[in-house]
Amino acid sequence: MSALVSFKQIGFAYPDASKPALHGLDLEIAPGSVTALLGPNGAGKTTLLNLVLGWLKPADGEVLFQGRPLGAYSRRDLGQKIALVPQSEHFTFEFTVLDYVLLGRAPYLQPLAMPGAADLEVAREAIAEAGIQELTHRPVTALSGGERQLVLLARALAQQPELLLLDEPSSHLDLANKARLIKILKSLNNRGVSILLSTHEPEVASSLASHLVLVREGQVFAEGNFEALFTAPNLEKLYGLPVEVITVGQRKIAIY
């Protein structure tokens, strides 16, 4: 089966940066997989996600989605296929959670169209799936960090994407919400949605991912099956400190 996303010899540098964020990077993401980008802060994980989104354009190389270059898709097409849950988002205006999640329907609507009853239904379902029905009519500006992150997730769900990108999705979540997020993402993946997430928390990767991509200093330093890669020597190289991997129940956990 052909790759969902392929990076071909990607080079990328931010303006005014002394060294490139990514260089000579090759990577393929399989359809239907849950792939975790694991690496220390500043390794280039968010840059990778933004390249998949098309928000950043590589200086060298090409990013393909379902075998075609990203530039070959219309903006609306990509919005229907790829959704992003950003790490955080600043809310300026007091939209209700429902209004906010409804914006996830934008890629399905012509620029002058208003969302209809069917779109509203999708938005309500997305809110229910994210488990935040009680927040439906609350203004987004009044929410806590964790609640906000679930609203961002609900909006991405309303996009009904084929590929869901998540940038550090667990960073503002408490234990219960982290578990809820993992459950939601698992059920989404069971319905055929591919998931690519960045995280610096090995536990999140270990409870979710089927594939692991270890990113360090702008390069993929190892990638493949989660079981094979999630080892103490790999994590030690990745983070540059002694790590021990132990198995609790069926889960591997990294301790340091």
């Binding site: 992003l84 209004d99 002058l112």
Partner: peptide
């Protein structure tokens, strides 16, 4: 309605299929 979308930051509006 589009205006709601454009009140979000650039990256988010972009990820929702707009230019």
């Amino acid at each position: 309605w589009r205006l709601n979308l454009l009140s979000l930051n650039d990256q988010t509006a972009f990820s929702l299929g707009s230019s």
